[in-house]
Design a binder for these strands. Sequence first.
DNA 1: ATATCATGCGAATAAGTATTCACATGGAGC
DNA 2: GCTCCATGTGAATACTTATTCGCATGATAT
Lengths: 196, 196
Amino acid sequence: MIQKKSTRVRKEEIVQAALEVVGGKGVRALTIAAIAATAGMSEANIYRHFGGKEEIFSALADFIGSSVMGKAATIAAGSRKPLEKLETIFFSHIAIIAEHPGIPRFVFSEDVLLGHPILAKTLNARIGNYMETIAGVIDAGIHEGELKQGISPRETALTLLGMIQFTALRCTVGGHACDIDAEAKKLWINFLTLVR
Amino acid sequence: MIQKKSTRVRKEEIVQAALEVVGGKGVRALTIAAIAATAGMSEANIYRHFGGKEEIFSALADFIGSSVMGKAATIAAGSRKPLEKLETIFFSHIAIIAEHPGIPRFVFSEDVLLGHPILAKTLNARIGNYMETIAGVIDAGIHEGELKQGISPRETALTLLGMIQFTALRCTVGGHACDIDAEAKKLWINFLTLVR
DNA sequence: ATATCATGCGAATAAGTATTCACATGGAGC
DNA sequence: GCTCCATGTGAATACTTATTCGCATGATAT
C-alpha cells in the first residue's frame, strides 16, 4: 500500500500522470490502467479522487488551459514592442510543447474533438481567444510600422498557429529525428522575412 | 445475405467504407464493426478479404497516397508559372480535404503515427516528398521573380502546409460552423501578401 | 444439372476497458 | 493509546473490440 495523501494532492498527481501518458503514448493510450501505473497507484484509487474518465479529461483540459493558454495573454498585455511580444509568445509556445508533447496532442486529439463535444467546445473557445490575442498583437505591429501594411491580422495569426501546430505534429512523432527548437528557429526567421 | 462479389471489389468497398467512417467519426471509431456496418456486410466477411485491421490500415494508406499525394507532383511538373502552380496545389488540397475529411484525419491521427510505426514512416516519407515538391515550386517562383527574395523555400512550404492542416483541423470539428473554402480563400490571399 | 469453392454469416472466444464493491489500513484528532 | 473515516486495493462486472470457426450459399466451370 502506498502512502496516503489528500485528494487535492492525488488529483494533481493523476492529472500529471495523465499528461505524461498522453505525451508518451497518445490519447488513445490514456486508459485508467495506464494512468494508475504511471501515477503508481491502483486503478480503483483513481475513482476515489475522480468520478470517472470524463472528469479526468476535464481536469486535464483545465490544467492545460489555465497553465498554458493564459501565458500568451500575459505577454500580449505587456509593454514591449509587438514584434518582440510575438516572438516571445511563439518561442514560449514551442518550449511548452517541447516539454509537454501531451499538450498539443490532447488539445488536437480526435478523442477530445470528436468524443467529448463539451470539452471540445471549451477548448475551441480557448484556441479562438488565443488566436485573437495574437491577431491583436499583429494588428498593433502593423500600425506601429513593425509589420508591413496589407497583411490580415487574423489570417496571419492562423498562419503562425498552423506553423506551430504542424511543427509540433511532425516533431512529436517518433521515427525521423526532429529538433523542434531548431525547426522553430528557422521557421521564425522565415516568418519575419514574410511579415516585414 | 448480400450479393457475392470478388475480393478485388470487396477490398475497394471496405477501404471506401473505412475512409467514410474516419471522415465521419474519426480513426478512434474505425472498428471492424463500424466498417462492416458502413460497407453493408458482416464483420466476419471483412476477414474474408483482409487479414486483419493492420491490412486495412495499409490499404487505406495506399489509397490515400496514390490517389491524393501524387496530384501535387503532377501539377508541379506542369508548364504553368510557379505561383499559379502553388495556387492550384493549395486549392486542390483544400478541395480534397473538404470532400474527404477522413484523409487528413487518418494521415495525422495518433493511431497511425503512434500505433502503426511502419505506416507512420511511409506516410512521413510521403509528406516529406510533398513538402519538397512545394519547396521546389516556391524556389522556382523566387528565381522567376514572382515571389520575393530572401524567403526560404523549405520553411515557406512548411508554413503553407501548416496553414492547410490547421484549417482542416479547425473546420472538420463539429460545433463551430466553418466554411473551409471561404477560410482557404482568405488564407491564400493573405499568403500572397506575405510572399510577394 | 451439378459439383465446387470462393464468398458470406451467426455465434463463440479472448483480450482490453471503465467502473463498482466489499474489505483493509493508516493517520489525524481525542 | 484509541477511534474513525478518508484513503487504498484486489476482485468482480459489464461492455467493447478483434478475431476465429463451423456452417450456408450461390456463381461458375464442366
